[in-house]
């Protein structure tokens, strides 16, 4: 475990907590894409299959549980909570996210490190996570005024993977034979998808104006 990875995990945890805070305290999911949340729940469900079979560390197990429970409870909140669901704008959240699932699965069947069920599911979760933010980014472009918590949520979600990239660079130089092209490339693609969001987020922060993405 290095500082970049710890910072990445903490940033990821912070993004989840910001989202839960928003939904649980102000009972609103305005501007949040249910589809991205569903994709993330699927990402964690397919990536943490080894939760009960392989024990790496208490930290690892604890964080996996937190991400699993939080992602599924966020989906539940937006879908079933009597107050929160009213603030979900399904007419705007129209990205056909099922079209992302199949290509990622097929790609995982073709490009993976080992042709086993666990490995293919893990690789699928990696590809899916790379594109899971797309429905949310599309929704942000449609939502005129993005509230602060939503902006912070997306920023932290993008930042965590950038920190993971630093972690991979660090591990590449410190651990012999540490080479994981699949992880590195999908992590890079994922981070690049946030590039324009980061730009506008930084501009809004620098000029102290409301965050707005061009349509």
């Amino acid at each position: 475990m290095n500082i970049f990875r710890l910072a990445g995990d903490m940033t990821h945890l912070a993004s989840v907590l910001v989202l839960l805070l928003k939904i649980h305290t102000i009972k609103s999911c305005a501007g949040i894409s249910l589809k991205t949340q569903e994709l993330y729940a699927l990402v964690f469900a397919t990536r943490y299959l080894d939760l009960f079979t392989d024990y790496i560390s208490l930290y690892n197990t604890l964080m996996k549980l937190i991400f699993l429970v939080s992602s599924f409870s966020i989906v539940w909140y937006i879908r079933h909570h009597k107050i929160v669901r009213r603030s979900y704008d399904k007419d705007q959240d129209t990205f056909r996210h099922y079209f992302l699932v199949l290509p990622c699965f097929l790609l995982a069947l073709v490009i993976n490190e080992k042709f086993t069920v666990k490995e293919i599911m893990w690789t699928f979760s990696l590809y899916l996570e790379a594109v899971a933010i797309l429905p949310q980014l599309v929704l942000l472009q449609r939502t005129r005024n993005i509230d602060n918590l939503t902006g912070q949520y997306v920023f932290l979600l993008g930042a965590y993977r950038s920190l993971y990239i630093l972690n991979w660079i660090y591990r590449y130089f410190t651990e012999p034979h540490y080479v994981h092209w699949i992880t590195w490339i999908s992590g890079l693609v994922q981070t690049l998808l946030y590039a324009d969001f980061f730009y506008y987020y930084f501009q809004s922060w620098k000029n102290n104006v409301k965050l707005e993405l061009p349509a």
Binding site: D9, D50, I56, N60, E119, N167
Partner: peptide, 10 residues
């Protein structure tokens, strides 16, 4: 190397 050692990250 085994699955566990290759997937020690979140």
């Amino acid at each position: 190397s085994g699955y566990v050692s290759r997937h020690d990250e979140l």
